[in-house]
Amino acid sequence: MKKNSVLTYEDYVRGVDNLDPEQQLSLVELLSAKLKKHVGRKSGKHKITELDGLGAEIWNEVDVQEYIRKERNSWD
């Protein structure tokens, strides 16, 4: 391997097969610990404004007044 080469995801995946089971387990533990730190930093909360425009494409071909009229008629 060249000194300044960058390993790809595929390189890592292929490399796992060259490890013995104990090394593979150690790698899983290392990755798990790193992920827990990363995931633990996120609050998991979202803002309602993140939903703005979500699904807007569904309404592109809809005549709003006709839709409202049909909905109101269905109430009776």
Rank of each mutant, 00 (worst) to 15 (best):
residue 1 M to Q: 10
residue 1 M to C: 15
residue 2 K to P: 01
residue 2 K to S: 12
residue 3 K to S: 08
residue 4 N to H: 02
residue 4 N to K: 09
residue 6 V to Q: 07
residue 6 V to I: 10
residue 6 V to S: 08
residue 6 V to P: 06
residue 7 L to T: 03
residue 7 L to G: 10
residue 8 T to K: 03
residue 8 T to I: 04
residue 10 E to A: 10
residue 10 E to S: 09
residue 10 E to L: 00
residue 12 Y to F: 08
residue 18 N to S: 06
residue 20 D to I: 04
residue 20 D to K: 00
residue 21 P to D: 13
residue 21 P to W: 11
residue 21 P to M: 06
residue 22 E to R: 06
residue 23 Q to L: 08
residue 24 Q to Y: 03
residue 24 Q to W: 02
residue 25 L to H: 12
residue 26 S to D: 13
residue 26 S to M: 13
residue 26 S to N: 00
residue 27 L to E: 00
residue 28 V to R: 14
residue 29 E to F: 13
residue 30 L to K: 13
residue 30 L to V: 01
residue 31 L to C: 07
residue 31 L to I: 11
residue 32 S to L: 15
residue 33 A to F: 11
residue 34 K to Q: 14
residue 36 K to E: 14
residue 37 K to F: 12
residue 38 H to Q: 14
residue 38 H to R: 15
residue 39 V to C: 02
residue 39 V to G: 01
residue 39 V to W: 07
residue 39 V to R: 01
residue 39 V to I: 13
residue 40 G to D: 06
residue 40 G to M: 01
residue 41 R to W: 03
residue 41 R to F: 12
residue 41 R to M: 11
residue 42 K to Y: 05
residue 42 K to H: 05
residue 43 S to H: 01
residue 43 S to F: 00
residue 44 G to C: 07
residue 45 K to T: 10
residue 45 K to V: 04
residue 45 K to H: 13
residue 46 H to T: 13
residue 47 K to H: 13
residue 48 I to S: 15
residue 48 I to W: 11
residue 49 T to A: 13
residue 49 T to D: 11
residue 50 E to V: 08
residue 50 E to C: 11
residue 50 E to D: 01
residue 51 L to W: 00
residue 51 L to N: 07
residue 52 D to V: 10
residue 52 D to C: 02
residue 52 D to E: 15
residue 54 L to W: 07
residue 54 L to V: 01
residue 55 G to Q: 09
residue 56 A to F: 07
residue 57 E to H: 14
residue 58 I to G: 06
residue 58 I to W: 04
residue 59 W to H: 04
residue 60 N to L: 07
residue 60 N to Y: 07
residue 63 D to V: 07
residue 63 D to P: 05
residue 63 D to G: 05
residue 64 V to P: 00
residue 64 V to Y: 12
residue 66 E to I: 13
residue 66 E to R: 03
residue 67 Y to F: 12
residue 67 Y to C: 02
residue 67 Y to H: 06
residue 68 I to S: 08
residue 69 R to L: 00
residue 69 R to V: 05
residue 69 R to T: 05
residue 69 R to W: 11
residue 69 R to N: 08
residue 70 K to E: 08
residue 71 E to K: 13
residue 72 R to C: 10
residue 72 R to F: 04
residue 73 N to K: 15
residue 73 N to Y: 04
residue 74 S to D: 00
residue 75 W to H: 09
